[in-house]
Design a protein around this nucleic acid. Structure first.
Length: 286
DNA sequence: AATGAAATCAACCGCCACCAA
DNA sequence: CTTGGTGGCGGTTGATTTCAT
């Protein structure tokens, strides 16, 4: 007698989601909110497991997701948080608005791990890897930094130099706090970024939202030294501030109405002819 | 252009924590 | 306290894409 499956898997669809399924799920959740994932597939008319629906929503369809690669300082945040928390991806993701645990986990495994290895840092312990022995000839994977550039990059990644490139983002201040008092700082004290402080990005442009009045005592304005940050149009900023200041997640129906407004103003590109809704195919707003 | 290798990432699986009965 | 249901998490898989030859 084995473990009872999370749901009746007979006749359930698996694998990649298509645009039609996405739409059904989004429509259902925007109309009814998130409740009882087990019941969602049936009520939404999906031949999916409830777990699969939850995962699809949280990792891909949620409107507050910020898709795309992690920015440089988000990557730094991940490294630093990982040093404190280990593989607690959900916890790490909670400090990076718009990013999912899955995304961060994937990014860690595919990019950051290699990067750290290349720089001679053990991604598990965040300590320098032992120098190669005779039995263990040097490999590229565990090489110590050789060039000045590599050493500088390493330094950047590990936040050793707080004075350099001082960034006034609330995100970075959180990390600086953590570094200044690394020994006794609890990661749970890192302030989760408030909605009005969120920086979101779309495909080709990043959207920088300047908080009207910052809740942070040390940061009165949001700015970044990153050149790819652009001020977004006031209309969107106003819109975004409006929806984020309302209790959208307590009352998803309200958000649905707001989204309708957005949809009215934006072109939604139909998913590509490919059956699988991958990345930007499903819901692309102009 | 063809092919195999490597990289990427969405999705699945199984375990665990929490909560209500 | 025990049990069953549910949601959430982290590890892993495997299909797809990209790169190298």
């Amino acid at each position: 007698m084995g473990r009872q499956p999370c749901c009746d898997k007979v006749g359930l669809k698996k694998g990649p989601w298509n645009a039609e399924e996405d739409q059904k799920l989004v429509n259902f959740i925007l109309t009814n909110g998130q409740c009882c994932w087990r019941a969602v597939p049936k009520l939404a008319g999906l031949l999916r497991c409830g777990k699969s629906c939850r995962l699809r929503w949280t990792n891909y369809l949620r409107p507050d997701l910020k898709r795309g690669l992690l920015s440089e300082y988000e990557e730094k945040m991940v490294i630093d948080l990982h040093a404190q928390l280990g593989n607690r991806w959900a916890k790490i993701a909670s400090h990076l608005p718009g990013k999912t645990d899955n995304e961060i986990k994937n990014h860690w495994n595919t990019h950051i791990k290699k990067k750290l290895n290349k720089m001679g840092i053990d991604p598990l312990t965040h300590k320098p890897l032992p120098p190669p022995t005779a039995d263990q000839p040097p490999s590229e994977a565990a090489a110590q930094p050789k060039t000045t550039e590599e050493a500088e990059e390493l330094e950047d990644l590990l936040f050793k130099d707080n004075e350099k490139d001082k960034i006034t983002s609330p995100l970075i201040e959180s990390t600086e706090l953590l570094l200044v008092n690394n020994n006794d700082f609890s990661i749970d004290e890192i302030p989760v970024i408030e909605p009005h402080e969120i920086m979101i990005s779309s495909d080709d442009q990043n959207i920088s939202l300047t908080p009207s009045s910052s809740s942070s005592s040390s940061s009165s304005s949001f700015s970044s030294n990153s050149n790819d940050l652009l001020e977004f149009s006031p209309s969107f900023e106003d819109y975004y501030r409006e929806i984020m200041s309302s209790d959208i997640w307590d009352d998803v129906v309200d958000f649905s109405n707001t989204l309708d407004l957005l949809v009215d103003d934006c072109d939604i590109h139909e998913p590509s002819s490919r059956g699988v809704a991958k990345h930007d195919d499903s819901w692309k707003f102009n």
